[in-house]
Amino acid sequence: MSLENILENWSKYRKGHEEGGYHEYEHMWGMAIDLDKCTGCNACSVACYAENNLAVVGEEKFSKGQGMHWLRIERYWDEPDLGEDKVNEYQIHGASFIPMNCQHCNAATCEPVCPVAATYHTPDGLNAQVYNRCIGSRYCSNNCPYRLRYFNFFSYYEDSWPEPLQMQLNPDISVRDKGVMEKCTFCVQRIRTAKDDAARDDRRGPGAVKDGDLKTACQQSCATQAIFFGDLLDKDSAVSKVWEKHEVALGKSSQNKSNPDKRGYRVLEGLNTDPCVMFLERVREV
């Protein structure tokens, strides 16, 4: 209860990757997103809106960068080849997409700066945000290198869910009010339910929650099944197999890109934030 207690438990779960603190976790929820499969259809983002009671802020506020999309599809275009020969006047590949949700960094930059310990690491390896505790200093958002934290500048409740739309709200997650930071939780309410189900069958620890017991909303709605989600401590889970196959691991800060078959990487890995989300590069015939 004391500050001392908070700090003690913090250090337990906030070891840098060079100290190898992972073995203390019960689970390590991780994600892998195959960008070669991603079509940029935005279904994941829409599913996230529905699942997590995300406010629809409207066009004007969205254009000011106040959108509350926990999972956003970022678009990138190749530069048209403007070499001397002017081979291509237009870009030939079209847009590339990358779905970005909270990366759940193990050495998260948002956590140590919170003045009230509203964001912290759970024993599940999740980067948690406690809405009741948040005072809205927005320091975490400014310190996030991925810009994946969203602030409630207004109370969106009445505009976003006018009668009778409030009936669609998910009761398993609170509706955030003005002045609170929020972000992707890896659908913690689903994790909670899956763990409860596992405990009922007397399954505990890593591997207790199997693939198929649990899907995040974005994974469930992905038309091309580009998203893998599961427990990285469970060596049999699909997600840890993808991580292993592409030689991405917690604690690594760079990828050897000599083998084109190993497509894995994590965004801004060199910052040593040690994210739990890895991406598979898009394959192109060039």
Partner: peptide, 15 residues
């Protein structure tokens, strides 16, 4: 929770 060794993780009870 302290007396009975219940979990002390915030996200166990807050959602």
């Amino acid at each position: 929770h302290e007396d009975n060794n219940g979990p002390s993780d915030c996200w166990k009870c807050h959602k």
